[in-house]
Computed example of a mutant assay.
Amino acid sequence: MNIYYKVFKTSLANQLEYRVNFISGFIFSLFPFTVNVLLWLAVSYQSTDMPLEAGGIVSYYFLTLITYNITSTVSIFKVSDDIRLGTLNTYLIKPYNYALYQLASDLPHRFVFITMNALPILILYFLLSPYFVFNFFTWKIVFFTLFLFAGYLINFLIDFLIALYSFYFSRVSSLYTSIRVLKNISAGIIFPLILLPESVFKVLKNLPFAFISHIPVSFLLDNESLYGAFFYLLKAACWIAVLSVFCAIVWKKGLKKYSAYGG
């Protein structure tokens, strides 16, 4: 465990050198946030069947802005390049798990984002607070944090699984882009899933993508019980276990095909 902690510290120190990038990245993400809010506000004013009112729309996209940035990962292209370019050899001879190494390297990105953007998020919170329809309670903050961590792990495992297909294909960028679009839709990042037909909504909210954004956001917006919170955490744990097994299987099969030459 000490090895992964050292990897985390090294990666954290490296990311702190580029902390301005995290602030600028968050500021630029405010543009799609603003467009989405204005778009759906216009729709809500023109439609009487809209399930979300103005306060609900502002609250939804504010929380989605946070969940999307916290549960995002950046490891996929590093893993893909390691496999494609043969630099994976360097890690195979090391006394640690490659997936855990990548996780320890990726986590500092989220840590720095939270630290660097705490003030901008607070400012945005106070500016929009008159429109919010959710309240923070201690137990809800605890479960919301757990949902965010579970969503991050699920997102990491999905991206890691996609990256492992570099064992079979030279490039996974097009596959990743296609899945990312579907993932963002299924996670409720593009628009609230509640706007979809009931049958489609029931399917999407039970997929692992929902934990990336939809479930954490809905947990704060809806009057979810403590029992329901534990139920969703259990479901998230099951998805993490399933995705971990799939990653392990693809990893073992991929290593049988993997080869790298030269020094």
Rank of each mutant, 00 (worst) to 15 (best):
Y4L: 12
K6Q: 11
K6L: 07
V7D: 09
F8R: 08
F8L: 12
E17V: 11
E17R: 15
E17S: 14
Y18M: 15
Y18K: 14
F22A: 11
G25Y: 05
F33Q: 04
Y45T: 05
Y45A: 10
T48Y: 10
T48F: 10
M50G: 05
M50D: 02
M50Y: 13
A54Q: 09
V58Y: 04
T64P: 04
I66E: 01
Y68E: 09
S72G: 05
V74W: 15
S75N: 15
S75Y: 15
K78E: 12
V79W: 08
G86A: 00
N89F: 11
Y91N: 07
K94R: 11
Y96I: 01
L100T: 12
Y101R: 07
L103I: 02
L107P: 08
V112H: 10
F113Q: 02
P120S: 08
I121S: 03
L122Q: 04
Y125G: 06
F126C: 02
S129V: 00
S129Q: 03
Y131Q: 01
V133C: 06
N135P: 03
N135D: 13
L146A: 11
L148N: 01
L148I: 07
L148K: 10
N155T: 06
F156V: 02
F156I: 07
D159K: 08
L161N: 10
I162D: 06
A163C: 14
A163H: 13
Y165D: 00
F167L: 00
S178P: 02
K183I: 04
N184K: 07
N184H: 06
S186W: 04
I189F: 00
V200F: 10
V203A: 04
L204D: 07
K205V: 10
P208V: 02
S213P: 00
I215C: 03
S218K: 14
S218T: 13
D222F: 08
Y227G: 07
G228V: 13
L233M: 05
K235Q: 14
V245F: 13
F246R: 01
I249P: 11
G254A: 15
L255V: 00
L255M: 01
Y258I: 05
S259P: 06
S259C: 08
G263M: 13
